[in-house]
Each structure stands twice: as structure tokens, then as C-alpha cells.
């Protein structure tokens, strides 16, 4: 039976196609948002994360202060809501008289960049290696797995301290140090999932329809495990942010001229008794961000798994 497709002008066809795509995308987004409302913790987490991202993006527009230049006359001013606080410094100032709010907003930039980039590259490396060794097994798998086991034997922080001491501080070096061990977790998850999914019958069915190995990995198995990778990645972003703060706290992470939460906490240690806010407030900012990321990740896991969904 031959059906002649109606002739459509190429440009019209493209517009038509894009309208369909847009409609589908809108429908999916709407459905996702509807689900999100059913998970209030995830919704709140998501909103807070978005606020952080917006603040980081528009930092120069939000605050007029320079994060690195202080006013020495206004040293260690308490937050505005405490007696003696000034309206000009809503969260107080540090020992150099720099506005804490400004520094926290600029610090969010570093934290988010380090978290997202290090996790993103870790996911990439871990997924590729994990998929290959989980699917093909054999010598390749043995070598990569033993190397991964070796890395797993080190505590993350100690390992990162060692690497940073070796390659020196700096944003790129910090990200590299985090990736160097961060990919292992993704590798293990993807490898394990790959090994279990590989024995599923749909893989055999795909072979029977004539698919090649690489197509089976990328187009059949990967969509089945991408959700667990995604959820794990979201959780790991929070952990990486904490790692970054810990290293900066120890003076090994972000160099001192760039505002970062970890080094802010460290710089306030000496004034803890007279000016508690210098250390505490960046710590709270860090805690709220990581908590929000974790809540959002947990909600995502519930929402994204199509197998948990009932008939639409």
C-alpha cells in the first residue's frame, strides 16, 4: 500500500515540525510542574536552588559593593537585624570591612561552577567508562575497575588535599582534583546498572531486531539508566560544593582573592567570640544550598522514574 505524503513546502514543514516539538515539550513541562507540586519539598528545594543560581548570575546587579574591596572603617559590623547593625550591610561585614552579603553572592558563583562542572565532567567520564566496561567486561573492565577500587580506598577529602597540595590551588585545579576521584562513583553505578540491564530481555530483543552493540548501549540501555545517573549527579553536586568549601576552608582550594564560602568561614574563625556572623553566615548559606539540592534531587528521583508512574 503506497500512500503519497502530502506535499509540504520545506520551510512550512520545518515550522510545522517545530510547532509539534514545542507543543510536546510544553506538555511534558506542564506535566513535570504538576508532579513537582505534589512533592512540596522538591518544589521548595528547586525554588531555592534557582534563587541561588539567579543571584550568582546577576551578582553585579544585585549588590553595588565590590566583593574584594572593603571599607576599613566599617570592620566587623554586625548584621542589620542585630543591635549595632547598619542598613548598608544587611548581613554585616568581615574583618576587612567587606559586605558579607556581597561576598556570599559572589561565593555562590564559585560554589555552583565548581559543583556543576566537576560533576558534569565526572558523569561524562564515569558513564563512558562504566558503560564500556559493564557491557563488554573482560580485561578492559578488570583494569578500570581495579583502578577505581584503588581510588575508592582513599577518603575523598584526604585525597583531594593531597592532590591540591601537589598541583596547587586555583579553580581549574580544584575542579580537576574533584573530577579525579569523582568519576569513580558514576563509573560504579553505570557499570553495575549496565551489567544488570544487559541481561534484560529487551536487550536480547534489540539484538534480534538487528541492532549493533554500540547502538544497544547508547539507544536501548542508556535511556533506562539515565535517571539514576541524573539523580546521583544532582546529589553529588551538593557533595562537591561541600568538598570545595572544605578545601577552601583549609586554604587549599580557591585562592584567597576570589570570594568563596569555605575561605570566608576560615577567615572568621579568629573573631568567633566577638563577631560570630563572619563564619556562621557563609556556613548557613552553604547549608541551605546543599540541603535544597538534596531535597530537589530526592524529589526528582520520584518524579522522573516512569516505572513509578501510574497510567496517565
Amino acid at each position: 500500500m503506497e500512500t503519497t505524503p502530502p506535499t509540504v513546502q520545506p520551510t512550512n514543514r520545518l515550522i510545522h515540525l517545530w510547532s509539534i516539538r514545542l507543543k510536546l515539550w510544553l506538555r511534558d513541562t506542564k506535566e513535570f510542574l504538576r508532579e513537582l507540586i505534589l512533592h512540596p519539598t522538591a518544589l521548595i528545594g528547586g525554588i531555592i536552588v534557582i534563587l541561588y543560581i539567579l543571584a550568582a548570575l546577576f551578582a553585579p546587579q544585585i549588590t553595588s559593593y565590590d566583593p574584594t574591596k572593603g571599607n576599613l572603617r566599617d570592620r566587623l559590623k554586625p548584621p542589620a537585624f542585630i543591635e549595632g547593625g547598619m542598613k548598608e550591610y544587611p548581613l554585616g561585614t568581615d574583618a576587612q570591612g567587606r559586605d558579607l552579603l556581597t561576598r556570599i553572592i559572589y561565593g555562590a558563583r564559585i560554589s555552583l561552577i565548581v559543583g556543576v562542572v566537576s560533576v558534569g565532567i565526572s558523569v561524562l567520564i564515569g558513564s563512558i567508562l562504566g558503560a564500556l566496561s559493564g557491557f563488554y567486561r573482560g580485561k578492559l573492565d578488570a583494569i578500570i575497575s581495579r583502578f577505581a577500587d584503588l581510588l575508592m580506598a582513599f577518603p575523598f577529602l584526604i585525597f583531594a588535599i593531597g592532590v591540591m597540595a601537589f598541583i596547587g590551588s586555583g579553580v581549574t585545579n580544584l575542579i580537576a582534583a574533584l573530577i579525579f576521584k569523582g568519576w569513580v562513583e558514576f563509573f560504579r553505578v553505570v557499570r553495575g546498572e549496565m551489567m544488570s540491564e544487559k541481561t534484560e530481555e529487551y536487550v536480547e530483543a534489540a539484538k534480534v531486531t538487528g541492532r549493533g552493540n554500540l547502538a544497544i548501549i547508547v539507544r536501548e540501555i542508556f535511556p533506562n539508566i539515565v535517571q539514576s545517573i541524573f539523580v546521583l549527579a544532582t546529589l553529588r553536586i551538593g557533595e562537591m560544593i561541600i568538598m570545595e568549601a572544605s578545601l577552601s576552608f583549609l586554604g587549599l582550594g580557591i585562592p584567597p582573592h576570589i570570594p568563596a564560602w569555605g575561605s570566608m568561614v576560615a577567615s572568621g574563625r579568629d573573631f568567633m567570640l566577638v563577631a560570630w556572623w563572619v563564619s556562621t553566615i557563609p556556613g548557613i548559606a552553604l547549608m541551605i544550598l546543599v540541603l535544597s539540592i538534596n531535597l530537589f534531587a530526592e524529589g526528582l528521583r520520584d518524579i522522573l522514574d516512569p516505572r513509578l508512574k501510574t497510567i496517565a
Binding site: 530481555e201 529487551y202 536480547e204 530483543a205 535511556p223 533506562n224 516512569p306
Partner: peptide
């Protein structure tokens, strides 16, 4: 080829 257990043979996603 068709298989015994259709539930697991179709790709769930």
C-alpha cells in the same frame, strides 16, 4: 523472534 515474557522484552522507557 518473540519471547516468553513480553513485559521484560519491551524497553520500558
Amino acid at each position: 523472534m518473540i519471547f516468553q515474557d513480553p513485559q521484560t522484552t519491551l524497553n520500558p522507557v
